[in-house]
Amino acid sequence: MTIQPSPLSHADALDLAPLYVLGALEDAEMAAVREHLATCPESHDEFEELGGVVPYLLESPDIEIVEPSAALGDRIMAAAAADLAERTAAERTTPATAAERTAPVPFPSADERTARAERTRNRPGPLAWIAAIAAVIAIAVLGVWNVRLQGQVNDLEQQATAAEQYRTAVTTVLDVAAQPGSQTALLAPQTTGGPRGIASVASDGSVQFAMQDLAPTSGSQVYETWAILPNSNPVPLGSFTVDASGVASFTSKQGPVGPGMAVAVSREPQAGATAPTEVVSVGVASTPAS
């Protein structure tokens, strides 16, 4: 049913108060009540009386206490680290002093990207991070990961050349993944349709990447690879360029290795970046279960 966005009377708003404070109205009704609260000069004590109780429902003893998996914390910290890396990179390009750090970042592209990502997150439909998490969960066990990868490879067979290149690149990654002490990450796009791929971190800290759906580079543009350890700044691992195939197979130089590490690919105006400008794909490395 459709509810007209006509203004609510004060009595109507009070009538909806109990369900409003629980968030249990249709979206149009929620919006109408919000609008009423913002504009009506009369008393709305009833809303506070009812709403003040609601937070305690979250501490109901009926809620069974369950610990999340240890990997969840690692994923959150890696995602936050990647987010921070972008912010830091944007700040470093400003001539601002440390005291002016809180000023708006003057990099419209990065700024807009963050804003867009935030809006996307709130909208119904697949969310970028949920996709990333789903991908990471999928590789938690090597068996699952192999099945998934095989499916990924099969799907690509119709797209002849680029697919063949990517497949070769993935095979190279698999060779690294098969070695003892290596960790593997599925890299998920930061925006819908963005680049994705797979990478294996060898025990010596070098990383083998296979990436697809990368926008081709031109001029001095490069893609830079990064190792991100929890609570540390991203460490650059070397850069590569991409042709129209959108596929890259890349062996990085040696970088840091540790539990909960993430690997990322960023797009840079030129080689030699010391902090990522725009992370386009990121994934958390995990050791396949035996």
């Binding site: 809620i63 369950v66 999340p68 959150i76 991070w129 949920i130």
Partner: peptide, 27 residues
Amino acid sequence: RTMAYSIALRITADASLAEDVVQDAFL
């Protein structure tokens, strides 16, 4: 994390979705 995950699991009744929710919330 324990309270957050317990609440998310109670509402979603799905361990994987609950972890997604917690990650989304902390980010």
